[in-house]
Design a protein around this nucleic acid. Structure first.
Lengths: 187, 187
DNA sequence: CTCCCCATGTAACTGGTTACATGATTCA
DNA sequence: TGAATCATGTAACCAGTTACATGGGGAG
């Protein structure tokens, strides 16, 4: 029912609710604040701004920056109350691990190594963001909650990786990757 | 470089590596095994099968079921070794929480309630799946690892929800949703 | 003067979902 | 014999990324 489009508009209206800014800045703002869990590209943002302006949800000040109108603020509140739709999941790492028999234990371990590295990086940026946020500022309290989501998730992923390494090491009673196909000899 | 298309083909080839089956069954198989972290629709699967057959990666047996050719098995091993690309994140709940100031604490709490409910459901299905898997079967070991990923994630999410409820309850020194807009009086 | 960042936009392409059309088989 | 499930496909639509084209403004 609710078109996905409204999700992009939600992000744009939300960004503009923080301050008036150019389309370029909207994208930068989205990247630097909700970027960890929400992505938008120029190809989405500019058309969205055009639609929003046509619908009088945003307008432009004398220096060209976009800002919310009263209708825009209403619309933002409305969109925030709509049920969040989550994108259909597509986790390439899990997909590969599921077929780990064909990939081989070594391949699985490599996947976990890469993932651990990526998560560790993310955790560091979370720590930086957290350090810059002021927990007593009522606005930033909400930002802190989203950072915390990332941290919980990251810690869980790291724990799962450690556990999975052990499970994989215990695995190879069967001949490893015995049906990986004819190329297994060439490897 | 690697077109996303290959990700769908990976899923289809992977399903067929378990057993020969019809396109309809491929979809059912994907749903019931990797469905928690990977989605495919008919509109993707049938064209993919047609392409794969044209490329001689799959063929059909006398009863019409698709099965992997040797080339198909090779291609599967190749795709499994390719770097997994993860879809750009789009978490509607976190997006809304980030703008929680405009949504109001009550709205945030509702989001958390719904999410908790959803996660609890998922955790139950994970438990069921785990109960049906045999940890000594080398094939199902890999399935177990993916289930475990879901469980770790779910537990982390539940912990984060509990923590966030407390953070939200401690929040309202400022007048709640003071700039939610003109409708705040009507609410 | 040149390079880099700010800024706005568009076109082409890909990926993906949804809904529809169609018919066979199974089973109560 | 009717309902449910299995099965195959297609058309329309939507969403989203990427790459390109274009130009202003400031810093070195």
């Amino acid at each position: 029912m609710a078109p996905k489009r409204s999700q992009t508009e939600l992000a744009v209206l939300g960004a503009l609710s923080l301050a008036p800014m150019s389309g370029y800045r909207v994208r930068a703002e989205i990247l630097s604040t909700v970027g960890h869990f929400w992505a938008e590209s120029f190809g989405q943002i500019y058309p969205a701004l055009a639609r929003l302006e046509a619908a009088a949800l945003v307008s432009r000040d004398d220096s060209g920056r976009y800002l919310l109108t009263d209708r825009g603020r209403l619309r933002l509140a409305e969109l925030l109350r709509e049920a969040p739709e989550s994108a259909p999941p597509r986790n390439g790492v899990l997909l590969r691990l599921f077929f780990g028999r064909k990939l081989g234990v070594d391949g699985c371990l490599e996947l976990l190594d890469r993932m651990e590295h990526d998560v560790a990086l993310k955790m560091r940026t979370f720590a930086e963001i957290r350090a810059e946020l002021d927990p007593s500022d009522p606005d930033e309290r909400f930002a802190l909650i989203t950072v915390s989501a990332g941290e919980h998730n990251g810690r869980a992923t790291l724990a799962w990786i450690a556990e999975s390494r052990i499970a994989l090491a215990a695995a190879p009673p069967a001949s490893p990757a015995s049906d990986a196909g004819p190329e297994s000899a060439a490897r």
